[in-house]
């Protein structure tokens, strides 16, 4: 029984069957990649996991509870954090505030009326945020406006924001999309580091085979809205079905 159990999920947009009977099980403390050609339904599946879309049929269970019908912030409070394709950060706030906000969210829940307390009087949160920033080597940038960071730093910051919530599951939506090779490698190293330092389950949606094979322990190949195979990276490389559907033209 995995931490994330997707059973018989289907989603239809008008005449398009985006997802057809998807079953997926992500085991705890593994890195699970979902790959597939464009239009395979990867993003639709992800959106069903985080409450942005509600599937037509099937169930999505996380840690023994159904996520269906819950709001994105409720699903986050259950322990799922999400990294976006383009980093979503609080661009008008400082780097430090960016990391403090998720710390507050984890401690105080979805809403708390702490209007007359002072941020400066929260040593626990401050310490937690400092540790997190030090973890991603950004402590020297704590007072910088997050919006003025480089793309790579924004990605690191977003990662730090997600990790400071100590999520049970981290969803990554093409974390290296549009990055130069050097930045991609940095991101891979960062993710490996994160993986080594703590118990965390990651679910990565990715185009870049280099990233997938560097990180993933299990790979699910999605094509035309249905999973073709679920295997270890070694077995995926030589799998004839996968070659046919997806890797045919890619150099692996």
């Amino acid at each position: 029984m995995g931490i994330l159990e997707v059973k018989n999920v289907s989603k239809r947009f008008g005449g398009l069957q985006a997802l057809g009977d998807v079953n997926l099980s992500v085991a705890e403390n593994t890195v699970h990649a979902i790959i597939g050609p464009n239009g395979a339904g990867k993003s639709t599946l992800l959106n069903c996991l985080i409450g942005k879309l509600i599937p037509d049929t099937g169930s999505v269970m996380f840690d023994g509870n159904s996520v269906l019908g819950r709001k994105p912030y409720e699903i986050n409070q259950m322990g799922i954090s999400r990294v976006f394709q383009t980093p979503e950060i609080f661009a008008d706030l400082t780097v430090f505030e960016n990391v403090m906000i998720p710390c507050f969210a984890t401690r105080d829940g979805a809403f708390r009326m702490h209007a007359l307390e002072s941020v400066a009087n929260e040593p626990d949160i401050v310490e937690q945020a400092e540790t997190m920033l030090a973890d991603v080597n950004m402590l020297d940038k704590r007072n910088v406006h997050a919006g003025s960071l480089s793309r790579g730093d924004k990605r690191r910051l977003e990662m730090a924001m997600c990790l400071s919530q100590q999520p049970k599951l981290l969803l990554l939506d093409e974390p290296t999309a549009g990055m130069a090779r050097a930045d991609t490698n940095n991101t891979i190293d960062l993710l490996k580091e994160i993986k080594d330092k703590r118990d965390i389950t990651m679910c990565i949606i990715e185009h870049d085979m280099h990233v997938v094979f560097s990180l993933a322990e299990r790979i699910t190949v999605l094509a035309q809205g249905t999973p073709l195979v679920e295997e270890t990276p070694e077995n995926i490389k030589g799998h004839p079905k996968v070659r046919e559907a997806y890797l045919g033209e890619a150099q692996v």
Partner: peptide, 23 residues
Amino acid sequence: SPFGMMLRAVKSNQQRMNYTGLN
């Protein structure tokens, strides 16, 4: 206050707020 910081977060990025467990 932390509340004031949340209000600035509302202005900055509501999407991120939602996916950070804040309503």
